[in-house]
Design a protein around this nucleic acid. Structure first.
Length: 425
DNA sequence: TCTGGGGTCCTAGGACCC
DNA sequence: TCTGGGGTCCTAGGACCC
């Protein structure tokens, strides 16, 4: 059996831990630039606010009633780690799936003990971190997702917040029969439309469908879901500790800008962030893709969207090389006369730094150069880690630049910044 | 005025090889 | 009328996830 542990309204719950006044009120957390709602408390959901609603489209009445906060990722990331640590007390097999969800393996445990273990896990997370979670047990990941949804919403389970499903029980059958197929993990609108044509509308319909036919019409991905619904494991989760295959950093700007200096600063900044991520997973990159775009929603303005790949002379993890490539890419992309809305970059073609081989065409770097680069980057990372993000930067952004994020309602970073811990209201 | 950011996997199709 | 038969590698694009 495997458990899916999912935090309830995670970002909102994090905020509530540090401000109990938010309890019982409609609370929403906004995306970057305070653009749209990305997390909602149950009270806000009850007011009919959908996930992803643009801030400026929220009815004024709701805006008055609700507490809307800028996102505080430093806080959420730290809280997430604390939750994961608690889960580790209950099983050696914890796979972190996202910031607010983990799969926890319970192979070899007495099946009859699981509900009690789930309950204990839930209580302990709540007590030690303040975050409410729900737990779904099932033989496969897709069913564990279904169980977790039931633990959150279904009248029969939500009081305890724990639900255990076996593959073939009547309870499972009943649940799958009333579950629209698009609410399954891995089935979204597009696939749902095509399944509907085949007369498959509920999760149960999909479970009973001919797996081969599903594979022919769709792909192995959909076929695996059929097997998982029947209780046969077909989905392996990537080991989250594996290095990423690509690293992206991009942001929409606080306001539109056509100024090349703004774009250059933004991209330098993103490139430095990407290089940090790269070093953290001990990889090197040999190509940087840079992209630039105008705001697609502003149909009244001329549109431009372009990307370019810049190859590096040699695979590297040195911020200076990566920043230089980003700036070079920008020079090739930038056109006069557009109001840009977003810029970013992606590090491609990543490989492990250890034992890397010289390519045929590269100019070898002297040992001395390599060591200097190594020391400089390690020192920068250490200072930023220990003294706070942005302590050391390559070039300083100007004040009041157009690309800086708008984040007007952010709560203090209680758990990661000493100087924000004490807040007098 | 204002619409997030970061990932993964799979498939199809083209280029190229022998 | 007829124009082989496999392979591999790479890229673009679709679909999905949180």
């Amino acid at each position: 059996m495997i458990a899916l542990v999912d935090c309830n309204n995670f970002y909102v719950s994090c905020e509530r831990v540090f401000d109990p006044m938010l309890e019982g009120r409609p609370v929403g957390v906004l995306s970057n630039n305070d653009g749209c709602v990305v997390a909602r408390s149950n009270e806000l959901k009850a007011l009919g606010v959908e996930m992803g609603t643009a801030m400026h489209l929220l009815p004024p009445a709701i805006r008055r009633q609700a507490v809307l906060l800028s996102s505080n990722y430093a806080l959420y990331g730290d809280m997430s780690q604390r939750v994961t640590e608690v889960l580790g007390e209950f099983s050696p097999h914890v796979e972190v799936y996202s910031i607010d969800e983990s799969f926890v393996g319970f192979q070899g445990f007495d099946p009859d003990s699981l509900e009690a273990r789930g309950q204990a896990m839930r209580d302990t997370v709540r007590q030690w971190t303040g975050i409410p979670v729900c737990v779904g047990f099932a033989p496969t990941r897709v069913l564990a997702k279904v169980a977790n949804q039931a633990a959150k919403k279904h009248p029969a389970y939500k009081q305890h917040g724990v639900c255990k499903l076996t593959a073939d029980s009547e309870a499972t059958k009943a649940l799958l029969k009333q579950l629209p197929v698009t609410e399954l993990w891995g089935v979204a609108r597009r696939t749902g439309e095509r399944l509907s044509v085949m007369g498959i509308d509920t999760a149960w319909d999909l479970r009973e469908a001919d797996a081969k036919r599903i594979r022919q019409r769709f792909s192995v991905v959909q076929e695996r879901i059929v097997w998982e619904l029947r209780g046969q494991s077909a989905i392996q989760l990537d080991d989250m500790s594996l290095p990423k295959k690509q690293i992206m950093v991009s942001r929409s700007f606080g306001r539109l800008t056509g100024n090349p200096h703004d774009l250059r600063e933004a991209l330098r900044h993103h490139a430095a962030r990407a290089a940090e991520k790269l070093r953290k997973q001990q990889s090197v990159t040999s190509a940087v893709m840079v992209f630039l775009r105008t705001n697609p929603f502003r149909t009244d303005l001329p549109q431009y969207q372009q990307r370019v790949v810049v190859s590096l002379e040699r695979p590297t993890d040195d911020s200076r090389d990566i920043i230089a490539s980003a700036v070079q890419g920008l020079r090739r992309l930038w056109r006069k006369g557009y109001a840009y809305h977003k810029a970013g970059l992606m590090l491609l073609d990543l490989s492990p730094k250890a034992n890397r081989q010289l390519t045929l065409t590269e100019t070898p770097q002297t040992d001395e150069e390599a060591k200097r680069s190594e020391r400089l980057m390690a020192t920068m990372d250490k200072l930023n880690r220990e003294l706070g993000k942005g302590t050391v930067q390559l070039g300083l952004p100007r004040k009041g630049n157009a690309w800086a994020l708008r984040s007007e309602r952010r709560t203090p970073r209680y758990t990661t910044q000493w100087n924000e811990l004490l807040v007098v209201k």
